[in-house]
């Protein structure tokens, strides 16, 4: 389990990284945290000819919180988001969700951009980003473009990112004040990739009715799935266990998860309903406390 030979470049700034990426094209692979790529290289399932290591590009590592948006640099590490008091204040979902990612060793090294670009549909970050309506800024030698999660995630481990692009920044809108969040997942062991993962947000109006709500599931399809059908009927109503349970029943008709050795399709579906209910209830409870 030793990686095959590769050429190694460790550019000091984004410009150089983009130049190298342009030069080597499909032979090159960006190395960010490496927590998914290096295992694949150790197993020789991935054999990039060229590694462009962006770990020294300090300009890509930052957290900025303004009144309306959280900006996170692509190279920012999981633990930095997990431990950021600012983020916990404005978007506690991220704090809660980061703790579900692997174990502390993984979070020391893994990066936000890396996880998003890896696009594992059972991973926490793609689901959270989708729920939160994040936008990703991709840089290439030709400039920058910004894409939504819907445009970005295409299917399993596949995104719209071009061969010569790097995810440099993530923008997460900060929602109105009375929004409660929750994320939870079903794993056989703590820290494993989830069998089913659910995240929800519920925003309450002054009168205690639901102003808006959203629900995103992971592990049910090739990309995180935003289930507007489930939440749109809840708007204008007072949150209750019954309302949430009733709304979530339709999930069985909305998702068709693939079976694997750990869970059948039926069971995953069943777990989706359970976890959807759990996160929606929790999010509503939390919103009520704000």
């Amino acid at each position: 389990m030793k990686p095959a030979v590769f050429d190694y470049h460790s550019p000091a700034d984004l410009e150089e990284a983009l130049r190298l990426l342009d030069e080597f094209g499909y032979d090159a692979k960006i190395m960010s945290g490496g927590q998914s790529l290096i295992p694949m290289m150790n197993m020789r399932l991935a054999r990039p000819q060229v590694i462009i290591d962006i770990n020294n590009i300090s300009e890509l590592s930052y957290i900025q919180v303004t009144d309306s948006v959280i900006k996170i640099g692509g190279l920012t590490r999981h633990y930095q988001v997990e431990e950021s008091k600012e983020i916990e204040r404005v978007c506690p979902l991220l704090t809660e969700g980061m703790k579900l990612i692997g174990h502390s060793q993984i979070r020391s090294r893994g990066t936000i951009g890396g996880s998003i670009v890896h696009a594992d549909p059972t991973a926490e970050l793609p689901v959270m980003m989708t729920l939160l309506g994040a936008e990703f800024t991709l840089a290439s030698p030709d400039g920058k473009r910004t894409v939504t999660t819907d445009e970005f995630f295409l299917t399993y481990l596949t995104t719209t990112i071009d061969m010569n692009e790097i995810l440099v920044s993530i923008d997460i809108p900060i929602p109105s004040t009375r929004t409660g969040y929750a994320i939870d997942e079903f794993t056989l062991r703590k820290g494993d990739f989830a069998i089913v993962l659910a995240a929800a947000s519920v925003t309450l109006s002054e009168d205690g009715t639901i102003a808006s709500a959203s629900l995103c599931l992971g592990g049910v399809d090739g990309v995180p799935v935003l289930l507007e059908e489930v939440t749109e009927g809840m708007i204008g109503q007072v949150p209750s266990t019954e309302l949430i349970a009733e709304s979530c029943e339709q999930i069985a008709d909305l998702v068709e998860p693939e079976p694997d050795i750990h869970a059948s399709s039926e069971y995953r579906k069943d777990l989706c309903i359970t976890y959807a209910k759990r996160v929606l209830e929790r999010a509503a409870e939390r919103a009520a406390l704000l």
């Binding site: 062991r189 494993d192 050795i261």
Partner: peptide, 16 residues
Amino acid sequence: LITGSFMDYLLPSSME
């Protein structure tokens, strides 16, 4: 063998 790595062959951790 479809559980041939520690990703799929689940050794109990301190949480289990």
